[in-house]
Amino acid sequence: MKLIIGNKNYSSWSLRGWLAAKQSGLSFEEITVPMFGKQWDALKSEDGGTQPSHGKVPILWDDEAVVWDSLAILEYLADKVGRDRFWPKDAVARGMARSMVAEMHSSYHALRGECPMNVRKRFEGFTPSEACRQDILRILGLWAEARSRFGSGGPFLFGTFGAADVYFAPVVSRFISYQIAVPGFAAAYMQAVWEHEWLQAWIETSESEEWVIEQYETIG
């Protein structure tokens, strides 16, 4: 398999696709295409396997299968290796995990717009808009419910690391970068995600990247 991703410092969707690939346990080749560079423009205009993505990342190639969109990649991999590797076994917990992932996939536009992912940056003096504050409160509420109802088996949202943590890992990065104040339970969860060996590997590579995208280096 091959996984095409963008810059590790900035690309939140790439992080989700990459974590999904790691969670699958399958081996894959990692191909980085710097966002907004010449390769990025070529990816947008290329015919063939990448055409359905419209130049977006991540993209998974698996023999003749081409899968774009991070959630589609996660589900494709879950079909290959067994869904229990990604989702809670308990039906009630699984229903909540699926709902949280779907909401993360489609919502929180204010948070995304005001707090672009920048793994290696720490912003001083960030004040969220009311819409962004509501996104943050919604996320913290979901984290609290998942942890209290289903998190007894470990430090992650549903105990063990899974699809929900894959999807909220970039949020953890954003909360750290923009120094969002969170309650103790959330800080403990964020620490568990941040210190996960896969996140540490991603962070280490992002810190060594040479690319800088200026629009993501200042508070808008």
Rank of each mutant, 00 (worst) to 15 (best):
E130P: 01
E130R: 10
E130N: 13
E130H: 04
E130L: 13
E130A: 15
R133Q: 14
R133D: 08
Q134D: 08
Q134L: 04
Q134F: 01
Q134T: 07
D135P: 01
D135A: 01
D135Y: 01
D135C: 03
D135F: 02
D135R: 00
I136M: 11
I136T: 05
I136E: 05
I136W: 06
L137T: 09
L137F: 09
R138S: 15
R138H: 13
R138I: 03
I139S: 06
L140S: 03
L140N: 06
L140E: 10
G141R: 07
G141Q: 06
G141Y: 02
G141K: 03
G141S: 11
G141L: 06
L142S: 11
L142Q: 13
L142M: 09
W143N: 05
W143G: 00
W143M: 11
W143R: 00
W143C: 04
W143S: 01
A144W: 01
A144T: 12
E145R: 14
A146N: 04
A146H: 09
R147N: 06
R147K: 15
R147I: 15
R147H: 12
R147A: 12
R147M: 13
S148A: 15
S148Y: 07
S148H: 13
S148I: 03
F150C: 09
F150W: 13
G151A: 12
G151V: 12
S152M: 12
S152Y: 02
S152G: 13
S152D: 14
G153R: 09
G154R: 02
G154H: 02
G154K: 03
G154T: 05
G154S: 04
G154E: 06
F156Y: 15
F156P: 11
F156V: 11
F156G: 11
F156A: 09
F156K: 08
L157N: 10
L157R: 06
L157H: 06
L157Y: 07
F158P: 05
F158A: 02
G159F: 06
T160N: 09
T160K: 09
F161E: 09
F161R: 04
F161Y: 15
